[in-house]
Design a protein around this nucleic acid. Structure first.
Lengths: 239, 239
DNA sequence: TAGTGGTCTAGACCACAGC
DNA sequence: CTGTGGTCTAGACCACTAG
């Protein structure tokens, strides 16, 4: 059981102070010694102490102010990193074969409704509707809009055999994204496509991504039934 | 419209390189000049360049290797920060008054089932069931387990008037957390408590938090109906 | 005004990994 | 072996702000 954490002075100082914060012996508001003082305590230069404290500040564990010094921060907000996997990877994690089927594809101009939730834009959108299967069962319905102004290559690409998600990611890096997760009641074509009774509960995940130039894509995943779970985790920084 | 970003040499270098990555002129795999070279280019010391590149590496935009140098990383995984707000804050954001009502409270030993999903532990659990209302309408059912070994003060605290969430956060800092989000079908007492018809779709968020000493609390929020949305965002680091 | 963090320097030695 | 990043030093000046 070798400690995989690399040894270095600033990591030692970082872990030492973080330990005091996390075990409660330094409660929120606790005043931390000045950099110069810690440099003497740890027998190192001020820059080394600064690196450790700057990292703690970036991670939200302490707050630093000139003149008044560093104090332990209030408990951070409940936050966690949400990992949105590729649908194919999600199916693979279940140990089932993944199948993909394009249901519909068309080009149309952006409507006012699109612009409202997706951002201001000009030009046409590519609208896709596709089904992901896990084994023989419908797993997830994918409804996607692609901004053809931002990704003109999409107009001449066939998504009949490959899902657009991975292709898009490689094509256009995004700089901003939002996700909305909610429960919905499946009705009409959504229910029938997913092989569900009308009125069944489903999990819906909507992701919108932007570039510096504007919207790239909006995709809505509707997971069949109540078995699918989105997970998010928080783990402390590796010291 | 003053730029709020502070000026410094390492921030300039960071923003400069990040700009090339995000606008696509430096695609994944692109080789970045060595620190010593960049130091000459920007007319600064190597340490300053190192700070900029280390930050880019920590943010996942580049990968750094000894001898072979720094290259632009493959597009990062689809990840975003999930902000789980306090229920009271969520209700307040709707512009409605928040009411809280404790429905049940009891102490019981941990079962095998608890240990399976919550982590190994000894001793008793405090089991709470409470309802949050937005205005006059049921908003969210909170079902919580508190590890009394980790938080013995909870045994002598009344949660009749105040939700346990904020109290716990102030009481015991957590170091690890997981969240599971899924759609469920409300049945039985859950449906009746939330004033829903049996079979209605709901969003269920389960959060489990741990200390260094073991489990702290597990809480399941069941949001009434399909109107509630959990959101997650990704925004690039402020340069 | 003085104490603190923010940044920068011009070196240095080491660890690691291609060659 | 050698080029690269990882870390560290012993200073320095500046910006900000609490007293």
């Amino acid at each position: 059981m070798e400690p995989r954490t690399k040894s270095s002075r600033y990591r030692t100082i970082h872990a030492d102070i973080l330990g005091h914060i996390l075990d409660g012996s330094w409660p929120p508001g606790h005043h931390i010694a000045a950099e110069t003082e810690l440099a003497v305590t740890y027998g190192c230069s001020r820059m080394t102490v600064n690196k450790a404290l700057s990292q703690l500040a970036a991670e939200g564990f302490i707050e630093r102010r000139r003149r008044s010094g560093s104090v332990v921060a209030l408990p951070r907000a409940q936050s966690a990193v949400l990992d949105i996997q590729d649908v194919a990877a999600e199916v693979a994690a279940l140990g089932l074969p993944h199948h993909y089927s394009l249901l519909a594809s068309r080009t149309r101009p952006a409507t006012e409704n699109d612009k409202e939730h997706f951002g201001d834009m000009e030009g046409d959108l590519l609208e896709l509707r596709a089904l992901h299967l896990a084994g023989e069962q419908p797993f997830c319905l994918e409804e996607r809009l692609i901004n053809l102004t931002a990704v003109p290559e999409a107009a001449s690409t066939s998504f009949a055999d490959n899902p657009p998600g991975a292709w898009l990611l490689a094509q256009v890096p995004w700089t901003e994204a939002t996700h909305d997760i909610r429960a919905i009641v499946a009705t009409g074509s959504t229910a029938s496509t997913l092989d569900l009774a009308a009125g069944a509960a489903c999990l819906e995940v909507t992701r919108r991504t932007w570039n510096r130039t504007g919207p790239i894509t909006e995709v809505r995943f509707t997971y069949a039934g109540t078995s699918h779970t989105v997970t998010a985790r928080f783990t402390p920084p590796g010291n």
